[in-house]
């Protein structure tokens, strides 16, 4: 068993820790840093409930080791709102009823943020394709698409 000293920037704050090499990034976030907004829904890199931004890319944090994140910049759902002001994607999910049980929501929003940062004016099909790594069991996706569309408009200003 090997342990490693890592330092990561999470939602703008530098965090240092000693981690076992096998510690999954999602467990590091949830259990070491108490950032429990990032969820776990499967064992097979299928559901996307654990999606975070890793150096700006949306990735599934259950399929990365924490040690791999040494030196990385991470964003989680807890870092979306800035100075008490909600991110447009959070507003969109709320106003368009893009969530029900809320369990897939953080991952879904993080994937949406990455999608909109790469493609500020996505079509509906591009949104659906871009979110196809994230599973939702409650909403039937219609209102998630609307939430992303509203956020896109809002982010355009």
């Amino acid at each position: 068993m090997s342990t490693h000293h890592i330092q990561v920037k999470v939602n703008g704050a530098v965090k240092a820790a000693e981690v076992e090499s096998r510690l999954l990034l999602v467990h590091f976030l949830r259990e070491s840093l108490n950032l429990t907004g990032t969820h776990i829904g499967c064992d097979t890199t299928s559901c996307g409930a654990c999606t975070v931004l890793w150096n700006g890319r949306a990735v599934k944090s259950c399929t990365l080791f924490a040690v791999q994140a040494d030196g990385a910049e991470l964003r989680t759902v807890e870092g979306l709102a800035q100075d008490g002001k909600l991110h447009p994607i959070q507003v969109g999910f709320h106003e368009k009823h893009g969530l029900q049980c809320g369990f897939c929501t953080p991952g879904m929003m993080m994937a949406s943020v990455a999608l909109l940062e790469a493609n500020p004016k996505p079509t509906e099909d591009e949104i659906r394709w871009g979110l196809s790594g994230n599973l939702c069991r409650c909403t039937g996706y219609v209102n998630i698409v609307k939430a992303v569309q509203q956020a896109a408009e809002q982010m355009q200003g």
């Binding site: 890199t45 990735v59 399929t63």
Partner: peptide, 9 residues
């Protein structure tokens, strides 16, 4: 290949 999030890695 896989899905968009997997493709990011």
């Amino acid at each position: 290949v896989a899905d968009p999030l997997v493709r990011n890695l």
